[in-house]
Write a protein that binds this DNA or RNA. Structure first.
Lengths: 219, 219
DNA sequence: AGCGAAACTTAAATAAAACTTAAGAAAAAT
DNA sequence: ATTTTTCTTAAGTTTTATTTAAGTTTCGCT
């Protein structure tokens, strides 16, 4: 799950980044309003942790922007100011939750889980194409009813394909779903994973479109 | 299972907290109406033990609030007042059960089990997967009919696995079931407990899905 | 048909995750 | 208060996943 952390205090940011990653999030970090806005162009951000009180503008603007353009993106606010007014304003503007500094990281994680659950639960947890079935919540995959065990990256790749049944995706698109930005790999990983997946499913389940990408399902 | 205890008498609270934890609950404690309300924001609270008669307001208000916002959250009421009227009022407002002080802790535990069973949908207090059988009320586990003695944490971990037969759960999910907020551990405890459990059951009873989590039972 | 680009296959190297131990800290029991 | 049990940590080990890279095949194009 891709998370955007907007926090200007570098010390705080560094620590949070690390522990958020430990919690399994892919974390992007902005320390200014400007760069935060830029990241928000990116559709793959699914969750935002927002510190109010940035050097180059007001974090509230970011919140407003988010709620205008992506109503459904969950936002958890951090702030040093503890006043009720701030809290009310934040929540009224559509923030999902609010934490006053200093806070216990564990509490932040709990609140993030709650916030992201709202999003995750909305989408159904099972995907099916042909006789390949995936339960994204339980992390299970079946082929003709038989369980198939997939390592994490293969699972993620298959998920990306199933989620876009009938739509061709380029290797680069797929890559960006499996890796964090800045971490994008420099070799033929996707090809190799595709190859491994193919050994576990019918030969032509994953189709190749030369020079274009990969698809699953009819089109 | 995360439980919120609302109790202003510190002596009582301390004792209850400890024994509830021994029963395997993750306990949060509030001694005021205000802080109780705050904890109730947290969706992961699954069970409430509520002492009426708090210093800064009436516990009945908390009950009303709960039943308004989270109809399904089970509440067990404690009270020093023994009057029938209180009892009737509490139950009418949707409390699941009622205990007059002084009470036998064992009775509270029993009632909590009943109350939480309602939520879990489980009809009985026994879980069974393969030839591993657990009686959650009696705190006993049998393997092929033979009793197995498990320390608390191992018991809780096994319970979490059995309750989700066929579902893969990540170490983090499991952790959050065994520990309370702010206490979530910083090391490989789960791995170690899994290891200990495995010595007591067939080798592949608990399956590992590398990078994903652990499961029990068929899938 | 033959060339070049793209994708496939394979195997080895690297990295990551999980397992195993054992020792010390904490909690419970006596 | 003492002893025993259980829990947590951390380091070392093993296992497995992932990436890389090189060699091979396939495909589309002129």
């Amino acid at each position: 799950m891709h998370l955007l952390l907007v926090e200007d205090d570098h010390l705080v940011a560094e620590g949070l980044c690390r522990s958020l990653r430990q919690q399994g999030y892919s974390v992007e970090h902005s320390s200014t309003v400007k760069s935060a806005m830029q990241w928000l162009q990116n559709d793959e951000i699914e969750l935002v942790v927002l510190d109010l009180g940035l050097p180059d503008g007001d974090g509230i603007d970011i919140l407003k922007h988010i709620k205008k353009h992506r109503k459904n993106l969950p936002v958890v606010i951090l702030t040093a100011r503890g006043s009720i007014d701030d809290k009310v304003m934040g929540l009224d503007l559509g923030a999902d939750d609010y934490l006053a500094k200093p806070f216990d990281p564990a509490e932040l994680f709990a609140r993030l889980r709650v916030a992201s659950r709202r999003v995750t639960q909305a989408q159904t947890s099972t995907l099916k194409v042909g006789d390949v079935e995936m339960d994204t919540a339980a992390f299970t995959v079946r082929f003709q009813g038989e369980p198939v065990n997939l390592p994490r990256k293969e699972f993620m790749l298959l998920k990306a394909l199933l989620e876009n049944q009938g739509r061709v995706q380029s290797k680069q698109q797929l890559e960006s779903k499996l890796y964090e930005w800045g971490e994008e790999v420099g070799s033929n990983t996707i090809e190799v994973h595709i190859h491994h997946l193919r050994k576990k499913f019918p030969k032509e389940f994953i189709k190749t479109l030369r020079g274009i990408g990969y698809v699953v399902g009819k089109r």
